[in-house]
């Protein structure tokens, strides 16, 4: 599924957060969006997912959806958004409840997601009994249960510690190795963008405009290898340079305000 964003502008009252965004996501492409706090990254994601109405401009999707897809555009949240009163399997089951599925298929969708994310033995557990990483895995299993065509990831690893982040990045790589799901991945962490994305979109400070779109040439599965490091370091320098300037200026504006 492709995503086509054209001349998108969004304002909250008289505060412009996004200004004239033009962006195209190719089928199966993973685009990381980085930028300073308050630049409208999450708003862009909300608009793409249809839970924030844009002030002007258009946002469209095109292309095929996979077999058995129940919710083509699906979110993964920073705070996991799990129902604390439901067990792991019932949290995954929640998003299937309103679809007319056979009991067997419902079970299969829940179980396969839980197994893939290593949650099988915790299926009866309540969210409060799980670590942060495990909770996000429930969030991923829930997203997988609806067989999405496009994932919208809103800083999915920001609430986790560094080691857990590494483990979950591996999980994401594995996911995208098996399914060619288009993804918009919002983060403020350069390492995540460099590990996971095909392209990186740098947004300016508010009002958010596209500063630059940087393509990472190295294929994802080879980025851990020594031969890839020179290129990644170069991309990293460039992204950091762009981000640093924006972040500093955003900081000063906040201080002044």
């Amino acid at each position: 599924m492709r995503l086509l964003v054209s001349d998108l502008t969004h304002r909250y009252d008289d505060l412009t957060v996004l200004d004239g965004i033009d962006l195209t996501l190719a089928e199966g492409e993973i685009l990381a969006v980085i930028g300073p706090s308050g630049c409208g990254k999450s708003t862009l994601l909300g608009i793409a997912g249809g839970i924030v109405a844009p002030s002007s401009g258009s946002i469209r999707v095109e292309g095929e959806v996979p077999d058995g897809c129940l919710n083509p555009i699906t979110f993964i949240f920073q705070d996991f958004a799990l129902l604390p009163w439901r067990s792991v399997e019932d949290n995954v089951g929640l998003v299937l409840e309103h679809h007319p599925l056979s009991a067997a298929e419902r079970r299969e969708r829940i179980d396969s997601g839980l197994r893939r994310m290593g949650l099988w033995e915790f299926r009866q557990a309540l969210p409060k009994q799980l670590s942060g990483g495990m909770r996000q895995r429930v969030g991923i299993a829930r997203a997988l249960a609806v067989r999405p065509a496009m994932l919208l990831l809103d800083e999915p690893l920001s609430a986790l510690d560094a080691q857990t982040r590494e483990l979950l990045m591996d999980d994401f790589l594995e996911l995208w190795r098996r399914e060619k799901t288009t993804a918009l991945y919002v983060t403020h962490n350069l390492d995540e963008a460099l590990r996971l994305a095909d392209r990186v979109c740098v947004l300016s400070r508010r009002p958010g405009r596209i500063r630059e779109l940087v393509t990472i040439e190295e294929p994802r599965e080879r980025r851990q290898e020594p031969s890839a490091q020179a290129h990644l370091a170069e991309v990293r320098d460039r992204l950091w340079h762009l981000m640093k300037a924006e972040a500093q200026m955003a900081d000063r504006e906040i201080a002044r305000a």
Binding site: L70, N71, L83, L94, E97
Partner: peptide, 19 residues
């Protein structure tokens, strides 16, 4: 955020209320 989550998965109004 839980209500937004449910909406993003297309849960109908009644389900959001009940669940």
């Amino acid at each position: 955020n839980l209500i937004r989550m449910a909406q993003s998965f297309g849960l109908p109004w009644r389900s959001i209320l009940r669940s």
